[in-house]
Write a protein that binds this DNA or RNA. Sequence first.
DNA 1: GATGTTTTTACAATCGATTGTAAAATTCAT
DNA 2: ATGAATTTTACAATCGATTGTAAAAACATC
Lengths: 339, 339
Amino acid sequence: MKEITIYDIAERLKISAATVSRGLKDDPLVNHKTKKLIVDAAEEMGYRSNSMASNLRNKKSNIIGVIVPRLNSNFMSDVIAGIEKVVNDANYNLFISQSLETMKKETSNAKAMFNNRVEGLLVSLAYDTADIEHFEPFIKRKVPVVFFDRVFEHPACPQIYIDNYKAAREVTNHLIDQGCKRIVHITANLLRSVYSERFNGYKKALEEHQLEFDDNLLIVNDLSSQAGIAAAEQILKMPVLPDGVFVANDLCAISCIQTLKKHGVKIPQDIAFAGFNNDPTTCVVEPNLTTINYKGYEMGEAAAKLMVAHLNNYDVKQMHSVVLRSELIVRESSLRKKN
Amino acid sequence: MKEITIYDIAERLKISAATVSRGLKDDPLVNHKTKKLIVDAAEEMGYRSNSMASNLRNKKSNIIGVIVPRLNSNFMSDVIAGIEKVVNDANYNLFISQSLETMKKETSNAKAMFNNRVEGLLVSLAYDTADIEHFEPFIKRKVPVVFFDRVFEHPACPQIYIDNYKAAREVTNHLIDQGCKRIVHITANLLRSVYSERFNGYKKALEEHQLEFDDNLLIVNDLSSQAGIAAAEQILKMPVLPDGVFVANDLCAISCIQTLKKHGVKIPQDIAFAGFNNDPTTCVVEPNLTTINYKGYEMGEAAAKLMVAHLNNYDVKQMHSVVLRSELIVRESSLRKKN
DNA sequence: GATGTTTTTACAATCGATTGTAAAATTCAT
DNA sequence: ATGAATTTTACAATCGATTGTAAAAACATC
């Protein structure tokens, strides 16, 4: 099964390969009639362009790399779906890899991407990534690196995220509104800006209502389902039970709720709950979970669009960060007052 | 920022590019000492191999393509995660695209994959794919096509799936065991073997217990959350309420349960429920949903491993299909007898 | 028909790594 | 030291598409 090349077409038509190459891509240097002959012959002979040869010649790989902590989370698969759509429509190809939440794998993935000469890199950082040295090779070579969700501040790297500070403040305000005075905050590594921002929003809301921040009410874990159970146990052991809990993601919030329920705690009467992400599960758990909604799909789209714009040299160099909309969705888990 | 090539290294060391090329890949034709010189120089000069050049020369793309119905489902993101791991470890790269459940997009994705010269294709078919004409170009060129989950029988294409027939039969048997006599089956396009097999398993179990299959108890939809609500309404309108429901996925089962609950139906006392997939949500819904567990991650791994084996010409040509383990997980939603 | 314009096509080098083969360098035996 | 055997290295062609430039063909003008 021999591959057809432009040389084969050239030979068949008794013209030069250069003309074939130009003819196939609508170059004005080629006569209409010849063009048609070329395209027809290509079709008939089953020609397909060899992207490796063309990439080599053009010094372009046509590949956009993606590194995310995990592929199998609700949020992330939405993001990937959004990225895929935009990138495919722009005729780029996607290389996807996961860091499994470790900086080590993130680094090795980045190196692989680098060696594969991706033309751009979309990144959401791992849980323990402390610096972004490993992206320097890209930045040095002016390969655009765009961060999304779990971002990192760097002058050369655009960011896509939501206003975590504002959202967290809104959530906390809502809980306070509902009469909560002792609000536990469960979150993850405060090195990640998403979590530190949420934490700051939480503190700000407390402050605005003259509630003092209590160190004992802060629980830092990895926000896994497992961690939610442990957090619940920690809460049950508190000398005074809190009356509200704001968890930085839904997964952990839900397992925490379920554990507390098993111990007879009434949600929201005893403890009001709020999560973050609006996972589908939030509408299944009883009571339904109050949360922050922000669409992963749109974040993926936005990040990919920004990347494509950069690669096409559209005028976006001045766009350093894009803040996406997010909204508080109030459900039963936090409703203690009847309106 | 000029890229370093083997020619640059050759010049620096005053040897030929051929030797550099060989030295970098441990060819026995190159002296130990020279090898070290080459590797050191490459390291120092910041050399990175140009995969496009090497792919062109080797006529290999190093790319494995993946086409799935949707990226953003629990099951599928697990699968992708499994595939990613295996493929990355084997030093291949992944091109991922989604058909969005339409044969049309599946076809165009396949064409794109073909033009990008993927070396292998992993496919889970779209909802309405009726034939696999669009994969013929791959098969003709001996590019391995491996189907997983939503498979299609073709002598040249290995398949990875679970025994849907057996699993469905087991689920149905369990419901019958719990005293159900009128069991509704909610499923999707019976063209897809996953669904027809489940349907057959369901019928088989009925037959084994001398229960007659009733056409009115079969509901075919797209198994979406929306469809679950509609199905619940349809059930409520039935002249005689069923006493059991077996849904071909969890998503639809859960929305159906929730709708029925809203109408005062008691689960499992009035109607026992079972789903399929073991989504995380099954442990959140009340009552927890009985379901079939099979790990997407492992399916992804298995499919990718089989692909890599084929590409490496390991002795797997005779492995036409791989059936993965699945298990019934009994939870409250179907437990009417106390053990 | 000679000259000038414009359109169309061909030549040849290039992108960087790979590999069969020939040539050179080294080692060894005598 | 000489020739044979072996190790090490270099030459050159190849993979297929691209593109600047030169050459050829077609056409128009006087």
